[in-house]
């Protein structure tokens, strides 16, 4: 970056923000609520990058529902999601996870797009987005694209978003008929915890059989991720006939959770197994 380049942008129009990203790319860091970035800067000795504040761009905020989906503006704060009747009714796990994203003060600032772009493995809303089959709307000066969220995170804190792109919206399809959902975040305490394990499960049923399963997990690996092997194991089965060992085996195929300052790999694995049992109505 050139010396003397502008260090702070606060555009009111999305087009302006995209133009800045087009010209400066990765040199400029978008910021919305700042609840993750501010902490990261505090922990780092690196100087703060140039910032692109998205907070004044009205078109990035809001919730819009139609019969097939809901589209959520990227800078919509968690508190809005938690309190929104449409979200509570149609996508209740998102209302729950938004209400468990840090404290009230955090929820008033933290945005859904920020939670996705920050790409923390322990992020609160991504498991839910994964379970609902979310799609991300990415925009750049050269156009828009819509991608499946399930392929968005490519590695620890890495995503497929290009340096000139911003996430502008998150789209959640309306769950199919006969779908049940189950969400649980496990931290040490009840409020404003960082998850040790979180599971959001979306199960579509036909009689006693699960015909479509999506298990979105946080804190089990380097990125929030769907448990593919587990879903494969469950789909087509009556959960009551599933062998506990088989579930554990599938989870072991999907994840190798690690020890860190917040918990142990062994605990995360066991809880993941137990939560899946809970989601399947076995516990």
């Amino acid at each position: 970056m050139s010396a003397g380049a502008q260090r702070w942008y606060r555009p009111r129009e999305l087009a302006e923000a995209l133009a800045i990203k087009a010209s400066r790319g990765a040199d400029v860091q978008p910021i919305a609520g700042g609840t993750d970035l501010m902490v990261a800067w505090r922990l780092s000795t690196a100087p703060m990058p140039a910032l692109l504040d998205l907070g004044a761009i009205g078109e990035l905020r809001g919730i819009c529902e139609d019969p097939d989906r809901v589209v959520i503006g990227a800078t919509t704060p968690c508190s809005t999601l938690a309190a929104d009747a449409r979200i509570q009714r149609g996508w209740p796990m998102l209302a729950q996870s938004a209400a468990l994203t840090g404290s009230v003060a955090i929820q008033n600032r933290a945005t859904l797009g920020g939670n996705v772009m920050n790409a923390s493995p322990a992020a609160d809303n991504p498991p839910v987005l994964l379970a609902y089959g979310a799609r991300l709307h990415l925009a750049s000066a050269s156009g828009r694209r819509v991608v499946d969220y399930s392929g968005f995170h490519t590695g620890y804190r890495q995503t497929i978003a290009r340096p000139d792109e911003l996430v502008v919206a998150i789209e959640l399809p309306r769950p199919a008929e006969a779908t049940t959902v189950w969400y649980r975040k496990v931290g040490t305490r009840r409020a404003q915890a960082i998850s040790k394990v979180a599971l959001a499960a979306c199960l579509q049923w036909q009689g006693s059989r699960v015909i479509r399963a999506r298990f979105g997990f946080a804190s089990l690996g380097p990125v929030p991720a769907l448990a593919g092997a587990l879903a494969h194991r469950v789909e087509g089965c009556d959960p009551g006939r599933l062998d506990a060992g088989a579930l554990a085996q599938a989870i072991d195929e999907d994840f190798r959770p690690i020890d860190d300052v917040r918990s142990t790999g062994a605990y995360r694995r066991q809880v993941a197994i137990n939560l899946v049992r809970g989601a399947l109505g076995l516990a």
């Binding site: 702070w8 606060r10 910021i31 609520g33 700042g34 609840t35 501010m38 902490v39 910032l51 504040d53 907070g55 508190s79 404290s103 009230v104 003060a105 955090i106 008033n108 600032r109």
Partner: peptide, 21 residues
């Protein structure tokens, strides 16, 4: 939360907020 302030009526932590915002 010791630094909590009201931003447009909503409680936020002022340690996580930038002046430009």
């Amino acid at each position: 939360g010791a630094c909590a302030v009201l931003l447009d009526g909503a409680m936020v932590n002022s340690c996580l907020l930038l002046a430009g915002q």
